[in-house]
């Protein structure tokens, strides 16, 4: 099994890596590139902790092969804040205490950002269904949903 050379863009950085043919993008991010912000909760696409954007589409990095990233763009939690400035969703998650242990938080933030890019004014129900693939065992989701809806409102006002 020989390694595959992949050239890709991750968080706007041109990136190259070698990976095995059956190695997932999640393993590449975490084990080869040191981007451990994406978490593995299940490895089967059932928990959403490894949510990343692939060519602008929300996916589970555990269900993408590293080799598939060739020529594509990947966005992870490490690229969400700009310099010292947190994304409004990150700030609202803090303000609403929308995390307890924090392991699901990166995945929720990536998924919520994807939601607001497509639906700037989601209803509570839309937010809940969009985020149903992100499991949280600590919060009961209440404060997460509040944070997402509040961030949406703030982002709409900011235009």
């Amino acid at each position: 099994m020989s390694a595959i050379h992949v050239t890709t863009t991750i968080n706007n950085d041109a990136t190259e890596f070698l990976c095995a043919p059956d190695e997932t993008l999640l393993d590449v991010l975490r084990d080869r590139l040191g981007l451990t912000g994406s978490k593995e909760g299940c490895g089967s696409g059932d928990c959403g902790a490894c949510s990343v954007m692939l060519d602008g589409r929300l996916v589970c990095a555990c269900l993408v092969l590293g080799a598939e990233a060739e020529g594509r763009t990947v966005a992870t939690i490490e690229g969400m804040a700009v310099g010292e400035t947190l994304h409004p969703l990150q700030r609202k998650f803090l303000e609403h205490a929308a995390l307890q242990c924090g392991i699901c938080t990166p995945g929720f933030l990536i998924a919520a950002k994807a939601l607001l890019e497509r639906h700037p004014d989601p209803t509570e129900e839309e937010a809940r269904y969009w985020l149903a693939g992100n499991l949280c065992r600590c919060t009961g989701y209440d404060k997460i949903i509040r944070a997402v809806l509040d961030a949406a409102a703030e982002m709409r006002e900011a235009g």
Binding site: L35, T36, E78, M80, Q90, F93, L94, L99
Partner: peptide
């Protein structure tokens, strides 16, 4: 919370 920024930016280091 004081550990919050690390946990919303992916910097916090968990077991794995």
């Amino acid at each position: 919370r004081p550990d919050g920024v690390d946990k919303v930016t992916g910097r916090a280091r968990f077991g794995a």
